[in-house]
Design a protein around this nucleic acid. Structure first.
Lengths: 190, 190
DNA sequence: AGCGAGTCGTTCGGCCTCAAACGATCTGCG
DNA sequence: CGCAGATCGTTTGAGGCCGAACGACTCGCT
């Protein structure tokens, strides 16, 4: 499939998003048109909104420039990455680490197993558990992909002053911790 | 400590994610086990990784605590929100603003239209265009939802020092702009 | 007038995504 | 023992999500 073609290019509806998206911050439009007496915290909204946009833009960028040619979706990549880091993992922990529901992971593993990138194996001592690990080709794939990923990450965020990058990272960590704190109590203590 | 039934609680596989996720930063594990001579930029990785985690945690939190009871998914909410801000929008622009492909929006609009929350109408002057706007009940729903959203946003990020919040917001904006710059040239100039 | 190229929104096929329901397995307690 | 309850991973059903293909429509040429 030709990547050029100025004429008749379907594909990549998604690519138009970021451009239009960033053209005019929604927060401003809201400020202009809506928040007459609605007392809204625009600062909070701006930060949260930018977190989502940055996440989507990053994900989109990586899918488009690195993952598509490898035939992987985001979650499949994350799954392989986790397995690469941890060596092998039970399904339940892998799902948690990859950030998807266990039922979602089941489907992802079916896909990856079909491509011979991962292997499933029942734990004999605990026959309820299923252990997943990379095959040789799965390991080769993620090993070749990861440096490119990290390189792109650095290309994108490396331009920021070190101090700002650090501050932003800390802020995000704090946000994650706060949400954990709010949502966490509903879960069982272990 | 028995917040909720310790016995037989299906549901909310997703909730376990954040907890396990934040327990042990993957970057550290990577540092421990992998990056012997692989020269990886851990700072970049930490920032990018935390952007994704924060975005997912936020989205998850809002879906669980605000959207579920309204029977809305994330994208459906964003779609209603855009319509609330802009009044009415063509399908193409709405998709871009909501951050989804136009084909995805088509499905979302089918769902929302089925619930009588939005309305579709053909533009008579340009019969290719479809204009979407909120119904009265759609408007009522988003109007009631938005303040709760903003309140939660403030609860979550409001604890950060103003300066740090501002710095983080700027950093995210810069990241989005950088990605736009990298990806943008491939799109048509308008 | 007519026709080819461009641009709408929709449809289609394939996968991801979730919660809930399910079968298999392990455990504790009588 | 035996079986009720907890905990695995998988299946199911409804919908989100994408790129590609498509029909409807518009515009520019000739």
């Amino acid at each position: 499939m030709p990547k050029n073609a100025r004429n008749a290019s379907p594909a990549a509806d998604k690519a138009a998003v970021a451009k239009l998206h960033s053209r005019k911050p929604l927060a401003e439009v809201l400020g202009e048109r809506k928040v007459a007496g609605l007392h809204v915290n625009l600062d909070s909204m701006a930060l949260v909104s930018n977190i989502h946009r940055a996440s989507a833009a990053l994900r989109d960028h990586f899918e488009r420039f690195v993952l598509t040619e490898a035939g992987l979706h985001w979650s499949a990549f994350v799954t392989l990455w986790c397995l690469w880091i941890y060596g092998e993992l039970e399904t339940r922990k892998l799902a948690a680490e990859a950030g998807v529901a266990k039922s979602t992971l089941s489907g992802i593993l079916n896909t990856l197993e079909g491509r011979r990138l991962v292997r499933r194996r029942t734990n004999e001592a605990e026959r309820r558990l299923v252990i997943v690990n990379l095959t040789a080709s799965g390991n080769a794939l993620i090993t070749s992909l990861f440096p490119r990923f990290n390189g792109e990450e650095t290309r994108i965020v490396g331009g920021l002053p070190t101090k700002q990058r650090q501050t932003a990272t800390d802020a995000l960590r704090a946000i994650i911790a706060t949400i954990d704190e709010i949502d966490g109590p509903l879960r069982d203590e272990d």
